[in-house]
Nucleic acid binder design. Structure first.
Lengths: 202, 202
DNA sequence: GGTACAATACCGACCAGTTGGTATGCAGCA
DNA sequence: TGCTGCATACCAACTGGTCGGTATTGTACC
């Protein structure tokens, strides 16, 4: 069972104990970083014992991977769902961005951990992650690309750069977004989508 | 001399030994992260001894701070220089972004370490950093704000959000920028500036 | 110009504390 | 009686940082 989290087998079928541990881990990782967080701190925060943790997870790294995994699967599923709606290019871009901003906002800790610690994935998992990301980027880029070719969107900025910029903004969001801030996630999503679409209309 | 790096006294007056150590530290921090990098690894990479390192720096943390410090001072100085040119709003925005992209690209490792590990600053240094960042944001925001009021730029996107987006993109740059990629830093800077200005023109 | 003295620059073996992970035990359910 | 689900005690490896000591450079005085 090397290289695979025991719990990762059945998707979304986390036991109560697993999600309890993961919830504590995410909070601590987001607060202090992965390396600076002790396994002992995690089990204390989750009010379980080390034995319990290592009963469900093979290694500390697996906690990280579970966090990535659940976030990415959810994002990929959302993307596919949006694409399937077959909206206009502009509406698709808007839907993708609003959705991304909203899920990122509702799962800030996970998103923050993700962007800060993703380079700690081992080779295999990193490769899997890159593949997912590539697919996400490509899908997004094609939406813009086709719209540009069809004259629906402007061509001032190349599609690939636009994707990098748009997704970069979202990835950076956990750094400055505060749930108690003046703007709701929905409003932020709208503003960011407005921004990107305004740029792409030129 | 608590809380202050010995070498931070005289700005930019790093001894050869200090920059040698810092150069190795930056590379390793960028590659594996701060916590995952051992002091021993740093001194090995720099081909010095632990004694030498602790002769010039009080603690491992001070290495991080020196990296931040040199990067931030340089960025703040650049900003002031650009503002002093008293260009038009659009040209100022462009100049800031192109400059930021170029310096970030030429110092990717430092920038990457910075965005990933800044939360490890202690309270004092964090406060100082926040003050600097606030000033940077405010300055940038005012440029946009005044231009919007004067009708020189559109008002579709609020100035504060625009700043967050623009700087977010730059902060995310180290994640995907590759020196051997197809686009030069200058070209990237131009494209990003085009993007932001196109959005702001709406 | 040489000698005594001192400050600076650096060395590397060592330490106390911490860390991720394990081995073993035990209760309850089938 | 055995198996799952956890608890407890423990360990070997590693980490940042220290400390006594040495080499090198600078300085003041004869």
């Amino acid at each position: 069972m090397r290289g695979v989290t025991r719990s990762a087998q059945g998707r979304g079928e986390l036991t109560p104990m697993e999600s309890r541990i993961l919830r504590a881990a995410v909070r601590l990782f987001a607060e202090k970083g992965f390396d600076a967080t002790t396994v002992q701190e995690i089990v204390d925060a989750a009010e379980v014992t080390k034995g319990a943790l290592y009963h469900y997870f093979d290694a500390k790294d697996d906690l990280l991977f579970e966090i990535y995994h659940s976030l990415i699967s959810s994002q990929m599923a959302d993307l596919d769902r949006i694409i399937a709606l077959r909206l206009s290019a502009a509406d698709t871009v808007r839907a993708i961005l609003v959705n991304l901003v909203e899920t990122t906002a509702s799962r800030v800790d996970e998103a923050a951990v993700f962007t800060r610690e993703m380079h700690k994935l081992n080779a295999d998992r990193m490769a899997a992650f890159r593949a997912d990301r590539r697919r996400y980027h490509e899908t997004f880029r094609e939406v813009i690309d086709r719209a540009q070719t069809a004259g629906e969107l402007g061509t001032v900025v190349p599609a690939d750069t636009a994707v990098l910029i748009a997704l970069g903004v979202v990835n950076q969001l956990p750094t400055w977004y505060r749930p108690d801030g003046p703007k709701s996630p929905q409003q932020l999503g709208t503003e960011i989508a407005d921004f990107v679409l305004a740029a792409l209309s030129a």
